[in-house]
Amino acid sequence: MREIVIISGKGGTGKTSLTAAFASLAENFVLCDADVDAADLHLLMQPATRHRSDFMGGSKAVINSALCTGCGTCIELCRFGGINDRFQVDAIRCEGCGVCVDLCPVQAIDFQVQRCGEWFISDTRFGPMVHARLGIAEENSGKLVSLIRKESRQLAEERGHDLIITDGPPGIGCPVIASVGGATVLVIITEPTVSGIHDMERVVDLASHFKVTGMVCVNKFDLNLEMTEAIEQLARKRNVALLGRVPFDPVFTRSMVEGKNIFEYGEQTATQEQVRVIWKKIIRSPSMNPLGIVDFKATIQ
């Protein structure tokens, strides 16, 4: 099983638009949207949900006022400032550590499992898709990412697919770490701005920290050619494969408005060819074909 995870560090560089475009070029794959707290891929995929499950995350403390004696032990123990002086739990501050629950001398504190979101297995015109929605202001996004990546893998195995394309979250924290572990390659989408290059460097650090191969694609490259060259230089220095450049093309926004990817939108642009070349570079890269075998299935048969 091979998994391409698309990340960026900085938000808004074009991860989802390019993931959707790759969906038109790939074959026999499962789509996975791992940006669970601001998932957008479904807006371009219009998935028909076949299966829905609740995502049960961590638990939160709830004080039963009828049993509480107001001894103050919980307030003293809580390191997150989650309990006020009227012995009410602030659900936003509660970390779910359960220390107050275990150590309340009169067992007045309940520990209720929270429904932190939901996840889906759906059908799209490109094949199956696994996606999720984290509840608003919820925690445990990393846990949910791990869950849907596991489900994607299982689904791919069931369907006899050997490829997963995962649209990742921005940043380098919890949900990103949950997205990169065990990935075959990380496709890093950046843009030629001071923040694009700064954030890409942190993602490259993350890729090497977790020992996953990274590859870089410069989106909107024509906004600042000098910066594009600086990014490419940095990529070479860091030994990260360069996939190519995608121009700043309003066709991305226009096709997004129609709920389509750039290949479906029906406007022939040079951008399509560039995205096609980038996809070929990814799929034919040595990291994706560790034994030099491009089509593993055909080889076995």
Partner: peptide
């Protein structure tokens, strides 16, 4: 930060 989960809440609360 972007998103709607705990890091954003920590930056807005």
């Amino acid at each position: 930060p972007p998103g709607t989960s705990c890091p954003v809440i920590a930056a807005m609360n």
